[in-house]
């Protein structure tokens, strides 16, 4: 499916040239344009300023703009590369590129490590893992006793913390993920491959913007 460059269309603040973004990512120019349609939709869902804010991100993920979630917060913070509280278009495309089926596994492993390194210490600590397990249980409305959570975390650490220093470093993480590839399942979005075929309406809309 072809697409027409949208040079004449009005763009939101933080807009970047699709040819530049395509050159830096696994997306084609057409796919970047299709992503721009998705971005516009998300960034106009509440504040209509062309920037994705936390509430808009939560609305898209949970159909509820007030739904706080530790993991959505972490994803939002990693997408917000400039750390200014909003996701701009270029940040959106570059970050989603990590989830592209053609992106090397090493990049996905590194992204997942950053995601779980809650306090940016360069390690995944036992307390962080426990906090994440409790957050997941809370989100799912499940209750497990502290003892059970402790067993789950302990068992995971016994497998992942091969150096036995009580924390998981990037090398240990890489090794652990290679033994448990299912852990990276949510780091790949099949939708991102040939976006314009999966979302033909986005491509059509980008042409109508002309």
């Amino acid at each position: 499916m072809g697409c027409i460059p949208t040079k004449l269309a009005k763009h939101t603040p933080g807009y970047e040239d699709p040819t530049v973004l395509a050159s830096e990512t696994s997306f084609s120019v057409c796919e970047v344009e299709a992503l721009y349609e998705l971005f516009k939709k998300l960034s106009h869902s509440i504040f209509k300023d062309g920037l994705i804010r936390k509430e808009e991100f939560q609305l898209a993920l949970f159909k509820n703009s007030k739904r706080k979630n530790l993991f959505a917060d972490r994803i939002f913070d990693l997408f917000d590369i400039k750390r200014n509280g909003v996701i701009e278009f270029g940040e959106f495309v570059r970050s989603l590129n990590v989830f592209h089926p053609d992106t090397p596994t090493e990049e996905k492993i590194a992204f997942a490590f950053k995601l779980y390194d809650l306090r940016h210490t360069g390690y995944i600590e036992r307390e962080e893992l426990k906090e994440m397990v409790f957050a997941l249980l809370d989100e799912s409305g499940l209750h497990l006793s502290d003892d059970v959570v402790e067993v789950i975390v302990e068992k995971t650490f016994s497998q992942a913390d091969s150096k036995g220093d009580g924390r998981i470093d990037p090398d240990e993480w890489k090794e652990f993920v290679s033994q448990n590839p299912a852990l990276l399942k949510n780091m790949t979005l099949p939708y991102l491959k040939d976006m314009t075929m999966v979302f033909p309406s986005f491509a059509v809309n980008s042409e109508l913007d002309e």
């Binding site: 530790l70 994440m132 397990v133 068992k155």
Partner: peptide
Amino acid sequence: QPAAMNAFELISMSKGLNLANLFDS
């Protein structure tokens, strides 16, 4: 058998990590 689960496997099920939802919005 939740105790048999890998903690990372458990947390990877979070809806907050399921970005496919961005496309359904």
